[in-house]
Design a protein around this nucleic acid. Structure first.
Lengths: 230, 230
DNA sequence: CCAATGCAAGAGCGCTGCTCTCTTTTTTGT
DNA sequence: ACAAAAAAGAGAGCAGCGCTCTTGCATTGG
């Protein structure tokens, strides 16, 4: 039934994809704020108003690109992780972090779109949540495996964070120790601090050997979570 | 001579300030991308073209706001630090970090302007460097004081980062141990990762008790730099 | 076969940053 | 003191933007 459900439906899918492709091209070339519906339409040989049959607004188009970007960085991290799936937790952690950094350097504007300042007044719809969680799930998985195999030393946790930590465990950290859940969330945010500072130019004239610096920094993040040196 | 160097010069200073004030108002209200020269001029009762006598372009106006924002967060951090100047390094570190977070929560759009995605194609001019360094200098100063008083344990530093670390020390870290300089830079970036994730909504449904979580996280950052528990 | 639907096109609204020209006002040099 | 020069404001205008509305055409399903 879905094989050939009319030339119209097929054309719609193709045009939608073409719009996203061209929009992604412009995004990569000039950045989100220069992404123009009219320019996309022009490049595709259609008139601007026709584009509204596919995306009800510029924000909706951006949302589609955001989801794709989350999926793209998530997949890059998953692929890099799969390549060292048999290695120790520390090695896997570093592989995921370096994959995120590599993807960010290769797709700076898409990175800025998802981890930079949110478009003003724009609230990400629920649809973006699952793809956004892919990298985080990888990191959680690494910690969980380490925990199961005994290669995890619990970091300290102050008393006033116990309730919060328990909630995190119940919500998404599964069978991880609460202190590890808290440390993971912090390390996750700190990882993006490192990537963002490099990408947004804050390391200019401060860090030169960015590759080795990053590797060292994320290694220390892993140690902070409790992953032991393998 | 500079007391009354003509009504014209004084008027120019006042008008320039009024433009920046109104622009900051709009920035705080709607965000950088909605800041409009025409709207600023309208609000000030002038015509849009007149504004170009004071700022040659929208980007230049934004740059002025960026510098002010760096100074604003820098001063907030310095004030908070001065209030606990006699305390131990850890306490001072936490005070600075919490001041940054507090400022960011109070001025989200200005924070996004300086630490979010850079305006596409926009490269910050050299003028922005000194104000941007104020917070970093505070953190360096805390580490230096701790080092002098012996309250600093050197973190580990892999061999391949030694040259980079030496360069950092020569460039801006003064008499700090190289390993501390590297750890400081990383902690600095990680601090902004924590603040950005909270501000840009990545902690939604993940971290609820953001205040205590943040305090704990930056405390661990300080420990990672080598500041010892006082 | 024909009515209903989907889609593209075009015109148009109000907004934007920015430039150019023209007039008025203030400062400066002789 | 007065003319030349510099600075500032006003207004029109250009090209671009997101978005809406109406109109004609093609495809589709009953």
């Amino acid at each position: 039934m879905s094989t050939t459900q009319g030339a119209r439906a097929r054309a719609r899918i193709e045009v939608t994809a073409a719009i996203k492709d061209e929009a992604r091209r412009q995004l990569a070339a000039e950045g989100a704020s220069k992404l123009s519906l009219r320019a996309v339409a022009r490049e595709l040989g259609m008139v601007s108003s026709a584009l509204y049959r596919y995306f009800p607004s510029r924000d909706e188009l951006l949302t589609a690109l955001i989801i794709d970007a989350y999926d793209s960085v998530g997949e890059a991290a998953e692929v890099a992780h799969a390549e060292v799936a048999d290695a120790g937790p520390l090695r896997r952690w570093i592989a995921v972090c370096e994959a995120v950094r590599g993807w960010a350097l290769a797709h700076p504007h898409e990175y800025a779109l998802i981890y930079g300042s949110p478009v003003p007044g724009y609230v990400a719809p629920e649809t973006t949540v699952p793809p956004a969680a892919r990298v985080a799930l990888l990191l959680i998985g690494i910690a969980r495996d380490a925990h199961r195999s005994g290669a995890l030393t619990e970091p300290p946790l102050p008393a006033d964070l116990h309730p919060e930590a328990e909630r995190m465990v119940a919500d998404f950290a599964g069978d991880l120790p609460p202190a590890v859940a808290v440390a993971l969330v912090a390390a996750w945010a700190e990882l993006y601090g490192l990537v963002s500072f490099e990408l947004f130019g804050q390391f200019r004239q401060v860090v030169e050997e960015r590759e080795v610096f990053f590797r060292h920094a994320v290694r220390r993040l892993a140690l902070g979570v409790g992953l032991v040196d393998a």
